[in-house]
Design a protein around this nucleic acid. Structure first.
Lengths: 236, 236
DNA sequence: CGCGGCTTTGATGTTCATCAAGTAAAGTGG
DNA sequence: CCACTTTACTTGATGAACATCAAAGCCGCG
């Protein structure tokens, strides 16, 4: 079936061939350049918990997420701060890609994930030769940073209960698209995301359970009263 | 004197001629395009307190700050959240410039400020025709969002005293470049920036005064013990 | 000169972090 | 596979950090 669908990629035989993201990232790349993309990019699989890139390391590759779920975070030796949880489309390498030589944050896989890597020099060259691609890339990167900034502001203006409910709704609606899901992070990581203590995150989850707003089975969360949770998120 | 200095702009007679930022933004623009830039861009002066752009309005122009100081903030009717205080180089329109059609935040002038405006369609066209310019622009925009995200994380990991000292050092070193300066914002605005109550910002400033770390004369702040303040900012 | 917004300080109460102590779950080496 | 260790989770108790309320002085501006 897929083979019969005629696309400009059809004649190519490379790992990009069946990639859902190829149109997103290489929609404006000419055929001969696409041939080069195919010969150059490398795919990389990560297991849950694996480090994808580490704060302070040299940026060598342009990386985007093909499947899975990752967390961006910063560490000062003592504590960690989670900056964002990203799924495919939400993550293009690290943000400062074109303005820094070293990674500013670390990225690890929260679920088994696959990335595609291209050498930075090649992407730069491609952007220089193909300005529509450059504009597209700019649009995508600015969308992502905007999303992160907005999210940080939304979290910042809420109190403990508001932040926890915001996170639950974030997982339910933005990440998993359903009212029942398995938390891809520990309670401690939720705490690091919303800037509260682990104990209080747990306490709040227990409160929500007692108030019959959610059900908890270990890592599995089921949102029972979505409107109630939304209200807490709005008012908290 | 300035007239005698030979530059590629010399033959031009437009408001860009003496602009310090022209090389920054239009360094890779060809001469004939520069001629067009000159004929198209418009300069706009704002008085302290003026609104430069308003959350929710349509994005029409590409705007950059030529002189002055501005604040980026968001309002939910009730309270305001300050996102960033920006000086020239730190501000290129609003961040989501290429990914949104409406402003996500508002911008007002904290000091008398001058902006330069170009129609978005023209900038897009320029970026499409000139990919080096596009890459440059991308680099600059990603630098700015990165800076904002980093700053939010730095603020988030500190307590009240740490946040206030961070802000004072930010004004002293990043904005004004000296240990004595006039606060361009009210106490309330500092509170909105660091996510604490106005009263506690004032209380902390008074504490610093009593501890002989700073001197206060209304809006004028003088940092007396810089090392002490740095220590509070690091540990707080 | 009087009004409204900004600033300041004190008193009070709420929210949240921390400490402590225990249970459950998940890796680890024999 | 089991004992062992470590890490994650949970609840309660306590105190610290911070918001809120209240009242008064100050300043700029019409």
């Amino acid at each position: 079936m897929e083979k019969e669908k005629p696309t400009s990629m059809e004649f190519l035989d490379c790992i990009c061939k069946d990639c859902d993201l190829k149109n997103l990232f290489f929609e404006h790349v000419k055929k001969d350049e696409m041939q080069r993309v195919c010969s150059m990019n490398t795919q990389h699989a990560f297991k849950k918990g694996d480090i994808i890139s580490r704060e302070g390391d040299d940026i060598k590759n342009f990386t985007y997420l093909k499947s899975g779920l990752v967390k961006l975070f910063r560490s000062d030796g003592e504590k960690e701060q989670i900056i964002h949880i990203a799924k495919p489309f939400d993550y293009v390498s690290i943000l400062s890609l074109f303005s820094q030589t070293k990674y500013q944050y670390s990225v690890t896989a929260l679920e088994d994930s696959v990335t595609c890597n291209l050498e930075m020099s090649f992407v730069t060259e491609m952007a220089e030769k193909n300005s529509v691609f450059a504009l597209d890339l700019m649009r995508r990167m600015s969308e992502i940073s905007d999303k992160i900034i907005m999210e940080m502001l939304e979290i910042r203006k809420r109190n403990l209960r508001g932040r926890v409910s915001f996170m639950l709704l974030y997982f339910a609606h933005d990440i998993f698209g359903g009212n029942s899901f398995e938390l891809p992070v520990s309670r401690k990581e939720i705490a690091e995301y919303i800037g509260m203590s682990t104990e209080n995150v747990i306490r709040t989850l227990s409160e929500f359970r007692k108030d019959k707003i959610i059900k908890i089975f270990g890592k599995i969360i089921e949102i029972v009263n979505n409107e109630g949770l939304e209200r807490i998120s709005r008012l908290g």
